[in-house]
Every structure is written in C-alpha cells, then in structure tokens.
Design a protein around this nucleic acid. Structure first.
Length: 429
DNA sequence: TCTGGGGTCCTAGGACCC
DNA sequence: TCTGGGGTCCTAGGACCC
C-alpha cells in the first residue's frame, strides 16, 4: 500500500468563520484584519478580486472598502479557534490519524484508503465538513506532504477540479508539476525563489528534476529534502502527536505610542499574565524571561531604539507573579530616562525559549514555600478566568487590560458566537 | 618554518510558515 | 492618525574541552 496523505484547509478560513454566522456575508467581499486592526490577513475571493493583497495595511484600503461595500472584521481568534476544533472533529471521523498543522490546515493519513477511492472520500469529507460546520474547504492528496500541499494549492486555484486534487496519480502529477510555478512549493520563499530562478528553474517539475547536491549547497538540507519530496519520497514524517512546544511568546503593538515607564511596565505585566496562562495550560515552565520593547520603524525621522534583555529566574516557573517581577526588572534595568522629544515605543513583548515540563525542573527545598502558595493561587485565577472570561481576574500590576489606551484595538470584532453564552446568535422565527 | 584534531554546546541570524 | 503575532528549523562561528 503506497503512502498517501491529504492536506485539507478552510478556504479563506477566518472569513468563512464570519460567514457561517451571518448569511448576509455570502457572495460579498469580506476581509479580516490582524491584531490592532493593522492589516488584511484573510480575504474572500471577492475581496481578492478587488485587489486587496495579503498584509495590506488597513488604512491604505479603508476608503476603497467603504466605497466597494467590503465587510471588514477585526480578528476573533476565540471564534476561529473553536471552529477549527470542530472541523478537526469531523476529520477524525474520516482518517485514523490527523496532524493539525495550523489553525486551518490538517494532514490526514489516507494510506489505508485504496487508490481509486481517495478522491471520492475527499469529496465526502468536504461535503460533511460543509454540512456540519459551515466551512468550505479544499483537499490535496499526494504521496508526500509537500505534494499534498501542492495538490491543495491546485485544488484551490482550478475550480473545475471541484475542490479536490490527487497527485498520488502519476499521470496527474506529471501533468500538473510542469504547469505550476516553483514559487508555489511549500518551503520556497523569496530568497530561495531568487536562487532557483538563477539556476533556470521555472516550474515545479524543473525543481523536481534538479541534481539535489548543488541545491543542498545553495539551500541547505531543506532544499534537498524538497526535491525528494517532490519525487514522491517522504522526508517529512507524519506527526499525529503534537510536539511539546519549545518556546512561547506574547508580543503586541500598542494601539497608540507609549512614552512613560509606568505604561510600559503595565503592558509588559499584562503580557506576562497571558504568558503564564499559556505555560500553565501546557504544564510547562521557564527559567528566564526575555523582555523587549522598541520604537516603530514607520516613525520616520525618529531614531530607532530597540531594547531586549533576558532576566534569569532562580528556578523554572510558570507563576504569573514571578514572571511579572522578572519582566519589570528587565524594564527597570534598561529604561533610559526620557529625552526631549521622548522615545515613542510602539511594541513590547515577553519571550521564553527552552521550556521544560515543570515537574521535572523542581529542585527540592528552595522556593518550595512559594510554590506551595503559588500553585493554588494560579489555579484559582485560571479557574475564574475560564468561567468569567479572560481578564476577569488579573494581578493588579497588569492593570485593567481592556481599559488601557495602549491596549490592542478590535473595533470591528464579531460576537464570540460559539463560546460565550451572552454572545449566542439570535434566531427570529 | 613549523603551530592538532575533533567534539560539544551555545548563540545569532536567516529563512520560512500560517 | 493608521503597517500583526507566533512559531519552527538550519547553519555558521565562537568558546571551550580533551
């Protein structure tokens, strides 16, 4: 039995999530914005047709959106995350192993499905996901992940295929790889594309047929693997079990510039609060916190100032109060008294790497008392926030996040239809 | 004039992804 | 006025060790 893997993803996923709960959005251009309503990160086909590109700053297209009737939304990650969970539940009914690759993409192991039945299964899967969650999808099938990704791209861009493309079929593979540009291959970015074009590569087939050795020289082992994957030799394993994360970061741009230390400390403390939540949810801890803050590269005429400092903790922890204390120390020891005109900081964040399962890192005795207090306190805080919504209980130093003038903008966010009782959609019968 | 060799660990930076 | 956030992997080069 040959290996076969499918990649299924939601079409314009964030936009589709908005459409599920508002039928008036059907056939209308829809755009979803990044944090702070900064730039466009999801567009329906109607919005793409208007020339709205991925990553376009919103202020550049605001007028056009208004005049063209584009419906614009702030990101609603609570909603999108829940819809993602629902689609994956459907996938699990169709394949013995599912690898969740991103919020809107999953690999399915179809190795046990007979060759002639894969496309039919994929069509059934699409129809079921659509019926049960409302999300439209496309499916690409291939002998390797790279070919499945490519098949998915083809399924999306060639409407006649009905949303499914199967590259485990040799004839289909031979046909399509000559007709797709190499820049569409998963893992080929700007830098690699320039190198490949210099080598005379144009189509995916050109890359597939290249001698792997010089490619390894130019593009490291990553480029070499790509060639084998395109030839149908799997180099990227199927990973049904989610790997434990290696790092964790919480970073945000401010909705307006910050010039005073108290505000910065407040923001950094709020980020630490979130960081602690993420670490505790996964039972991980860290023995250091890196704090950074910087001015904006878009503020022309102002000199750029960028600060980053790492504060060690006496032992690994995921206690919010410990993280806040460390991060504030990081600010304190790097803060420069304001000059005239003042530095206008645009973004700050807290970062940790080398996360450890907390049970493993507990060195006996030292800090034991603090830990005994911190565990129940953090657990109580997490429980309150789970019940009453994030931010219901926060350390005083993190400030009342939602009320701060620097906090993230979400001026056009839709209701969290599926996760907040108070925001359920209302049906009038 | 000649100036070991190999291994590990760490970090910074590049590249890419969604 | 207004330009996202959060990850992963790989390599080169330095420090250090025997």
């Amino acid at each position: 039995m040959t290996r076969a893997v499918a990649l299924i993803d939601g079409n314009s996923f964030y936009c589709s999530c908005e459409r599920v709960f508002d039928p008036k959005l059907d056939r209308v251009p829809v755009v979803v914005l990044s944090n702070n309503d900064g730039c466009a990160i999801a567009r329906t086909s109607e919005a793409k047709a208007l020339g709205i590109k991925m990553g376009t700053p919103y202020f550049q297209i605001r007028e056009m959106c208004r005049s063209q009737g584009v419906r614009v939304f702030s990101s609603n990650y609570t909603l999108y995350g829940d819809m993602s969970r629902r689609t994956n539940e459907v996938y699990r009914g169709f394949a013995p192993r599912v690898e969740i690759y991103s919020i809107d993409e999953s690999f399915l192991d179809l190795s046990d499905v007979r060759e002639g039945e894969r496309v039919e299964l994929a069509r059934d899967l699409r129809a079921t996901v659509r019926a049960w969650t409302g999300i439209p999808t496309c499916v690409g099938i291939g002998p390797t992940k790279t070919l499945a990704k490519l098949a998915n791209h083809i399924a999306k861009s060639v409407p006649e295929l009905g949303g499914v493309c199967d590259l485990t079929d040799d004839a289909a593979s031979a046909y399509w790889l000559c007709r797709v540009h190499v820049g569409e291959v998963w893992g080929i970015g700007r830098a690699s594309l320039a190198k490949l074009e210099a080598m005379g590569v144009d189509s995916v087939a050109d890359l597939r047929d290249l001698d792997p050795r010089p490619v390894r020289k130019a593009m490291t082992v990553v480029g070499e693997r790509l060639i084998y994957e395109l030839r149908g030799l799997p180099c990227l394993p199927f990973e049904a079990l989610p790997a434990t994360r290696k790092g964790c970061a919480v970073t945000r741009s401010f909705s307006s510039r910050i010039t005073d230390r108290a505000r910065l400390e407040e923001a950094v403390s709020a980020h630490c609060t979130r960081l602690g939540e993420k670490l505790r949810r996964e039972g991980l801890g860290t023995d250091h916190v890196t704090v950074f803050y910087h001015t904006s590269e878009h503020d022309r005429g102002e000199p750029m100032r960028s600060i980053s400092t790492t504060v060690r903790l006496p032992e690994a922890s995921n206690d919010t109060l410990t993280l806040i204390k460390a991060a504030r120390h990081g600010v304190a020891r790097t803060w420069l008294d304001q000059r005239d005109p003042p530095w206008r900081y645009s973004k700050a964040g807290v970062i940790t790497v080398d996360l450890v399962p907390l049970a493993m890192s507990q060195r006996a005795l030292i800090g034991q008392l603090d830990r005994e207090r911190s565990g129940p306190l953090m657990a109580a805080m997490d429980a309150c926030n789970a019940r009453f919504g994030r931010g219901a209980v926060v350390p005083a130093r993190a400030g009342l996040v939602a009320k701060r003038d620097w906090s993230t903008k979400f001026e056009m966010r839709s209701p969290r239809y599926t996760t907040q009782v108070g925001e359920l959609p209302v049906a009038v019968a």
